[in-house]
Design a protein around this nucleic acid. Sequence first.
DNA 1: GCATTAACTGGCCGGCCGGTCAATTAGTTG
DNA 2: CAACTAATTGACCGGCCGGCCAGTTAATGC
Lengths: 190, 190
Amino acid sequence: MTRARILESAFELFVDKGFAAVSVREIAERSEVTKSLIHHHFGGKEGLWEEVKQLAFAQYYQGQKEELDQAEQPGPELIMRAVINYFEFLRNNPGVVRLFAWTHLEGDTSCSEMDGELVRLGAERVRQAQQAGLLRDDVNPTHVVTIFVSLCTQWFEARDHHCNWPGMGSDQEFLDDFLKVFMEGLLPRP
Amino acid sequence: MTRARILESAFELFVDKGFAAVSVREIAERSEVTKSLIHHHFGGKEGLWEEVKQLAFAQYYQGQKEELDQAEQPGPELIMRAVINYFEFLRNNPGVVRLFAWTHLEGDTSCSEMDGELVRLGAERVRQAQQAGLLRDDVNPTHVVTIFVSLCTQWFEARDHHCNWPGMGSDQEFLDDFLKVFMEGLLPRP
DNA sequence: GCATTAACTGGCCGGCCGGTCAATTAGTTG
DNA sequence: CAACTAATTGACCGGCCGGCCAGTTAATGC
């Protein structure tokens, strides 16, 4: 469908250059339609941008919600699996990562509630594990989730940047080291 | 001086909206000069952008290098102080944080060597502490540095975004919790 | 098969974009 | 003061921007 082709081209370009640096003409050319048609379907550049974002957000939200909704006994293993899952999602969806980054810089907070809900779910799991004595309880559960989320996010956002740092390992090696430190730092203190 | 006033206005606008979304006219208006003068002094929009970035990078590099060059016995306390120092720098220079973020998204790697050098210095400190038996030695030192750099960076980059997450604490509270988990996770394993 | 709606086109608009240039003013040096 | 340089201006350029609209083609329903 034409609509989908436009959305795809727009996604690629927005991911690559950000909203301001992409022209409607460019999107039209890549999706092999006329500029007018984009206007017809999306109302304008802004409308298209919103729809692209919404699609990406929905994809993100759905994938993460699924994982978090699986009712299991909270504990270190569950937390770790959630982190790995999140890490994998970002690895497989670099476009979404960049779209989020552009969006944040532009001050768009439309995905705040969505993200807030996911964080709330994650923090609840951490809290349960704390109450069960499986994780140290002297740290804010929301902070724990934020640590995991921020680290995964930044790893992929700045990947091109720090992949050249001396001594840097692969995705997997970084994740392993990062989990080693945090999972053990989260264990109950004697 | 006029040149400095232009640079200041440009910095503010670029920080706020990114390179593509700022017009030379806008910068001229804010700094109360004519568009032509900007051309005269900086050669064009691109030239001004480069100079703004270079100034910010220099400021960043200088501040961090100073801290890292202080010859002290490496150990957990030194690492912790470096983290706190980095965190404070970002807190006090939100503009620089955003400029870095825009720059990364645009694929500019001009600050990669600079950052690489800082990371190398930090990793060296970690390695020394590992060899002295003060930190666990089964993690890549570069990864350790990357972990705390990424976390501090992301905290301030996405601050507006996650400050509304339920249960989120203040800058200080987050830093405290992060250090609690991170520093204990780095201790030598029995 | 005819009416209605949706998909799609090309051309045009006013406006802003970055950049250029000749001319003017201010500052400096001898 | 004169001569030269640097700072600064305003007017102007071609080009691209997003948006609009009248019109055409294609699909849909009765």
